[in-house]
């Protein structure tokens, strides 16, 4: 299912509840190492809950979450970050009254500070020269686009194998959206698996390898991104809507 690639992350029959509310219903995902996978769906369909389940902010009631062959669904968040999962949170969520550099340091929080910290910092600075210019500025004073760069940079500082992105295009100007998606592809080419929740389905499908469609907590469709773009249901529900919104 993951195109013959070794599996990075799996959901096996995951059910998640908020109180009585059944949010994820028997969900299965298979993310191959090195893929860009996007998760499409309307409001309140379980996209954000998927991200929270991966990061350990909510625990599944039943089912298994497996990362690189090992169950992680009972592990604390810090342990998951240590193993190589880093988030780019919805609306960036930088620490507004810490400098850009300190935000990047927080990304590397679970790692020992050594020579590889400087390497990773250089990697971030070379991807985002703007971030280097702003390193001593309070993160809260940056523009939305700059904040997004720091948020992605912060995730990279964890030296992750998998980055989970929640709405990376939200609140960004079209120019920045395009730049952000370019960067996501670059990062992916460096070997990082990307799992992305995105409202901008047209944009997301243009760079993704595969996609899942969630509807009221269930996976109703999955397949290669190219097929998804042609799929009538997806066009009606997500692409059409986006084009109208863009017009």
């Amino acid at each position: 299912m993951a195109g013959g690639l070794p599996l990075m992350l799996e959901f096996r029959n995951v059910n998640t509840y908020y109180g009585d509310l059944h949010v994820l219903k028997n969900v299965n995902y298979n993310l191959g190492a090195g893929e860009i996978i996007c998760l499409l769906g309307g409001n309140a369909c379980g996209k954000s809950t998927t991200m929270k389940t991966i990061m350990g902010i909510v625990r599944p009631t039943s089912g298994e979450v497996i990362f690189e062959g090992e169950r992680i669904d009972r592990l604390p968040t810090a342990e998951r970050v240590k193993r190589g999962i880093a988030p780019v949170l919805e609306a960036r969520r930088l620490f507004p009254r810490m400098t850009v550099f300190e935000n990047l340091e927080m990304g590397a929080f679970t790692r020992k500070r050594g020579a590889d910290f400087d390497q990773d910092l250089e990697r971030v600075y070379s991807l985002f020269p703007r971030v280097k210019e702003r390193r001593d500025q309070m993160a809260g004073t940056l523009s939305g686009g700059e904040q997004q760069m720091v948020a992605i940079g912060r995730a990279l500082m964890a030296r992750p194998k998998l980055i989970c992105m929640d709405e990376p295009s939200m609140g960004l100007s079209p120019l920045f959206v395009e730049q952000t998606f370019d960067i996501i592809q670059q990062i992916n080419r460096q070997g990082v698996t990307i799992f992305m929740v995105e409202q901008n389905a047209a944009m997301a499908l243009s760079i993704a390898h595969r996609a899942y469609v969630l509807q009221t907590g269930q996976v109703v469709l999955e397949g290669p991104a190219s097929e998804m773009r042609e799929n009538e249901h997806v066009r009606d529900a997500y692409l059409g809507e986006m084009q109208v919104a863009a017009a």
């Binding site: 902010i57 968040t77 927080m106 929080f109 964890a158």
Partner: peptide, 11 residues
């Protein structure tokens, strides 16, 4: 400044 984000950094 942001307890949830700090948690997801592994704090």
């Amino acid at each position: 400044q942001d307890p949830d984000a700090a948690l997801m950094m592994g704090v």
